[in-house]
Design a protein around this nucleic acid. Structure first.
Lengths: 339, 339
DNA sequence: CAGAATATTGCAAGCGCTTGCATTACGATT
DNA sequence: AATCGTAATGCAAGCGCTTGCAATATTCTG
C-alpha cells in the first residue's frame, strides 16, 4: 500500500480545524488554545504527520540548512572544527550541508553554488581569499557567509579564526631561538590557499631579517599528503647548505617528513629539526612528537556557528572574532648539531 | 537596494517565453529548440537566476539531498569514507546533509529525524542495529536507507561494508599464531555499537577455543579516545596473568595504549603486543607501527553512494555489497617474550 | 503539395505550507 | 445588559517551480 504522506490539510480535517491553525500549532503554539492544541497533537501523532520540507521552505524562504565547504575531509585537519560547528547547529535544529573543495578555488565555487542551490541559508567557508566571481556570487545571492581558519581585521567580511601570518612568525622565531642558521620551509601550495600563503609569508618575514644571520635554504611548496611530504623532504635535505631545521606548513607535511627522515637514517631533531602546524591528533604520535602550532579548533567551530547563526537571523549582528594560537613544544625541534 | 532574487517568471519575461519553457530549458534541454535555449541562457546569465530550492522541492518532491549520520567526525575513522561518499554525490549534483550521533542511538534517532525533516531523499547510516522506533520511523517515512561499516547477508536492508565479526577473528587468529597465550581485549563500548560488538565477538570466538590453549585475561570496554585508551591500558596491564598481547577495538584505542605503554616503560611489542583496527592514518605513525585491519574506506564510500543513489532513483535497485578487509602487519605485534 | 508525424511552446493546475487580515468567541468592564 | 478588548480561529492569497495536456510550428513522406 503506497500511501502518500499526510499533509497539513489531512491533519486539519482529522482535527476538525483549519490548516492555518495546525500550522500555528506547530510554529507558534501559544497562539492556539490549549484544548485545540491537544486535539491537533493527537491528530498529528495519529497520522504520523511531518511538515513537508519543500512547502515550508517555499512559504518561509528559510531552510534551516547551513552550507559548509571545506578543503578536505580526508585528513583530520578540519574534522574537529566541523564537528564542533555541527554540534551547535544541531542544538538549534539547523543542519549542515557539506561540500569539499580539494583546495581548488574553482571546485570550491562549484560546491558553493550547489549548496546554495540546495537551499543553504548561510555559508561557512575556509579561508579569506577567493576569486572575484565567487565573492560576487555570494554577495549577489545575499548569503550570509562566515570565514574560518583565518582572521582579517581590515575586512567587512566575517571571520572566526586566527592570524596565520603571526603564527608563522612565531614558529620561525622559535626555530631561530634554538640557534638554527640554515632553514628550509616546506609549505602547502599557496596558490588558492591563503592560510598556507600567510603562514609562509609569516615565516619568511622572520627568517629573512638579516640581523638574525639565518639563511632560508629553500622554500618548497607541495600538496598536503604524506607521500608528497616524503618527496619534499628528499628535495629539501639535498640542498646545500643542508638545512638543520625544516618548517612545515602543516602537521601532515611535518609527519610525513619526519617519517621519511627516519627512514633515511636521519635523526630528528639531532640531524634535522622539523616543526608542524595545526596540532592534529597525529602530532603527538609521531616520534618524536611534533613541535607545532595549536589551533583552537573546537572553539573556532563553536564561535563560528554562533556568529553565523546570529548573522543569518539578523543580518549585521554577526561579529568577527580573533582566536589565539600557541606553540606546543614536543621533541621534533631541538638545537642544531654543533657546527 | 534590496532586490528580490529573480524568479522563473522574471526570466521568462526577459527571454520572451513562458515560464514552462524556462523550466524545461533547465531540466530537459533537449526538449527546447536550440535558438530559444540560447536566448534563455542569456537571460538567465543576465539576471543571475538560480532556481529556488523550495519551489523546486515542492514541485518535484525531491531535494537531491542525502542525509548521513555518522558516530563522530572528530576522529578520522569515518572521514575517508564520507569524503569518498561525498565525491560521488557531488558528481551527481546531490549534496550531503550531515549529522553526528556521538555513538548514541537516541541522539542518532534525533539526528535522523532532523535530517529527514530537512528534506533528505535518502539516508546513510553507520552500523546495522538500531532501536525499533528508529527502524519504524525510517520505514514509515519510506526513506531509502543504506548502512555502511558492516555487512549482513541475511537482511533485507542495504549494506555496503564488511564482516566485522570475521575481521575480529582474523586478528585474534594472527595473535594466536604468534604464540600468545595471555590475551586481553580493549574494545569500544558495545552497547549501541554493533561494529564494536561484532569485532569483539569475533575475537572472543577464536580466543576461547580451548584447543588453542590461550586465555582471555580480560575484556574491557571503553570509549574511543586516547585518554580512555591510556586508562584502559593501565587496567588491563595490571591483570594477572599479565597479558602479552592486547587486541584493540580500533586504532584510536591501540594508539592510545601504545603511547601509554611506552610512557610506562613497556616495550612494544617485546613486553606487550598491541593490535589495532581500521588502519587510520595514525596507525603508521605510531611507533611501532600498528598491526591492524585495513578497512576499504574509500571503496566503501564510493559503492555506498552508488547503491544508495540507485535505490533512491529506483527503489529496489540498490544492492548490498560485501567488501573485504585485510590485515596490515607493522611492528606492534610480535611474539611474546620467552617464558 | 497535402497529410501525417514530430518537435516546440504555452496554459494552468497543482505541490504543501505560512501569514496578514477578517471574523468570531469569550470574558471583563462600566 | 451593552460595550469593548483580547484571544482564537478561519480565509485566501501567495511562495516558485514542474508537468500533463493542448495548441502551434516545423519537418517528413510519398
Amino acid at each position: 500500500m503506497i500511501t502518500k504522506p499526510p499533509t497539513l490539510d489531512d491533519v486539519a480535517q482529522a482535527a476538525g480545524v483549519s490548516a492555518a491553525t495546525i500550522s500555528r500549532c506547530i510554529n507558534t503554539p501559544d497562539r492556539v488554545a490549549e484544548s485545540t492544541r491537544l486535539r491537533i497533537q493527537a491528530a498529528i501523532d495519529a497520522l504520523g504527520y511531518t511538515p513537508n520540507f519543500g512547502g515550508r521552505a517555499l512559504a518561509t524562504r528559510r531552510t534551516n540548512i547551513i552550507g559548509a565547504v571545506i578543503p578536505s575531509m580526508a585528513n583530520s585537519v578540519f574534522a574537529g572544527g566541523i564537528q564542533a560547528f555541527q554540534e551547535v547547529l544541531a542544538r538549534e535544529k539547523v543542519t549542515l550541508l557539506i561540500g569539499s573543495s580539494n583546495y581548488d578555488p574553482d571546485y570550491e565555487f562549484e560546491q558553493i553554488q550547489t549548496l546554495i542551490s540546495h537551499g543553504a541559508d548561510g555559508m561557512l567557508l575556509v579561508g579569506s581569499k577567493r576569486p572575484e566571481r565567487t565573492q560576487q556570487f555570494l554577495i549577489s545571492r545575499r548569503i550570509p557567509t562566515l570565514n574560518i581558519w583565518c582572521y582579517r581585521a581590515d575586512s567587512d567580511q566575517l571571520y572566526v579564526g586566527f592570524d596565520n601570518h603571526r603564527a608563522g612568525q612565531d614558529v620561525a622565531k622559535l626555530v631561530l631561538d634554538y640557534g638554527h642558521k640554515a632553514v628550509a620551509i616546506v609549505s602547502g601550495i599557496c596558490d588558492g590557499n591563503d592560510r598556507a600563503a600567510d603562514r609562509l609569508a609569516g615565516m619568511t618575514s622572520v627568517l629573512d631579517v638579516p640581523a638574525y644571520g639565518a639563511q632560508t635554504v629553500m622554500v618548497h611548496q607541495t600538496k598536503y599528503s604524506f607521500d608528497h611530504a616524503a618527496k619534499a623532504f628528499d628535495t629539501v635535505i639535498a640542498q646545500s647548505p643542508r638545512p638543520t631545521a625544516i618548517l612545515a606548513g602543516n602537521d601532515v607535511l611535518a609527519a610525513g617528513m619526519t617519517q621519511r627522515a627516519k627512514a633515511l637514517g636521519f635523526s630528528v631533531p639531532d640531524d634535522v629539526s622539523i616543526t608542524g602546524f595545526d596540532d592534529i591528533a597525529l602530532a603527538q604520535f609521531v616520534d618524536p612528537g611534533l613541535t607545532t602550532v595549536r589551533v583552537p579548533q573546537v572553539q573556532m567551530g563553536h564561535r563560528a556557528a554562533e556568529e553565523l547563526l546570529a548573522e543569518i537571523r539578523e543580518p549585521g549582528s554577526g561579529r568577527s572574532v580573533e582566536l589565539l594560537t600557541h606553540i606546543i613544544k614536543r621533541g621534533s625541534l631541538g638545537p642544531p648539531a654543533q657546527g
